[in-house]
Nucleic acid binder design. Structure first.
Lengths: 193, 193
DNA sequence: TTTATCATGTAAGGTGTTACATGATTTA
DNA sequence: TAAATCATGTAACACCTTACATGATAAA
């Protein structure tokens, strides 16, 4: 159910089309939440039918239509309510740790390949998140800039600080995963003999 | 698709019923993978129809039937193939970090409540995982004991070491989440003024 | 004129959750 | 006799993924 709140968070800054949102989801915010276009367009329609957002139809050329969505008062309230209510945490379901627990059932080379892929995966995420933090510090991120433009002076520091805080958490998680997998490689070496 | 491999991993140690598997998923292995009974029973049927496992029907009392599943050679191969092939990592979708990035939109008390709940959530997981490590060290975990019973002497050290390694990773992740949320609380205090 | 980007969707299928539904056996 | 545990499922729905499908506009 968080998809709609991720969408609302973006739209609260200013009206965007499904296409714009999709781009955000594969760029900056995509590092915290991701959804494909096939999920975004229907969800926007549904949110519009529930009165959380309102489409502003724009014609593009002769035939094309572009729907730019605005957050309604109801949508704003829905987002703020979500921010105040407890999050529901799902039970762990972690393929990587599941596999790690059974690494003795495979050969050392497969074990190493798995751990190296795990490192590569998290190093890629880490690089993106670190770059995002740099962009936050430099106030370069376009969405952040737009948000700051509609934010009262007094709230700007908090806006930046919490965004940075969120990414710091992701960076630390990635670093932890990498350190863990590196220790795993050492373990394979030690047990391999 | 990992549910079936989690099931195979458990069944490879020895035949179990849907009920037994469900219990494992809410206990020891449940700390790495979880599934409700409504997902387990149909999946077992499907796996049986694909020849990965075979049911041994046992009558309980006059009417009750209990199906204990054995892993077939095909099932064993499927598991080992999965252990050798690359894992597919899903894109991040993290409600807690999504919310953290927008914490300036809510009041300090809601922010604190969220962070405290995050800490409580991960402390509960941490406690379970730490207990699990203790049980691994003491060779008390029933599934581990069963597994060691069907494991060649030479592989016992590896079996224990990898299981411990998997849980260590989870413990470190939980510690990271807790430390991050604690810093978040400090941040709320600092920005609140 | 071709390619990239803008723009919006449908369809099918897999995965996961919650609630519902039933009944037997064992232990206190 | 009551409660706990054993035991197996169905139904409806939410969420997510992958592939398919179409066409306009802008830039090279």
């Amino acid at each position: 159910m968080s998809l709609r709140y991720a969408l609302l968070a973006l739209l609260r800054v200013g009206p965007l089309s499904g296409y714009d949102l999709q781009k955000q989801f594969s760029q900056s915010v995509g590092h915290v939440w991701h959804a494909p276009d096939s999920q975004i367009y229907p969800e926007l329609r549904k949110m519009a039918s529930e009165g959380l957002i309102e489409p502003e139809e724009q014609t593009r050329g002769r035939l094309g239509t572009r729907r730019v969505y605005h957050v309604t008062d109801a949508g704003d309230r829905a987002f703020l309510d979500w921010m105040r209510c407890p999050l529901d945490y799902q039970r762990v379901r972690d393929p990587a740790h599941l596999r790690a627990a059974y690494l003795e059932t495979t050969d050392a080379e497969s074990a190493r390949r798995f751990l190296r892929a795990h490192i590569a995966q998290w190093e890629a995420e880490l690089a993106q998140w670190e770059r995002e933090i740099e962009r936050i510090d430099a106030v370069e991120n376009p969405m952040l800039v737009r948000r700051l433009a509609v934010t009262a002076e007094a709230d700007r520091e908090r806006t930046i600080a919490y965004k940075r805080f969120a990414y710091e958490g992701l960076v630390e998680r990635a670093q932890g995963e990498i350190a863990w997998a590196r220790r795993g490689l050492d373990l394979v070496d030690r047990l391999g003999r």
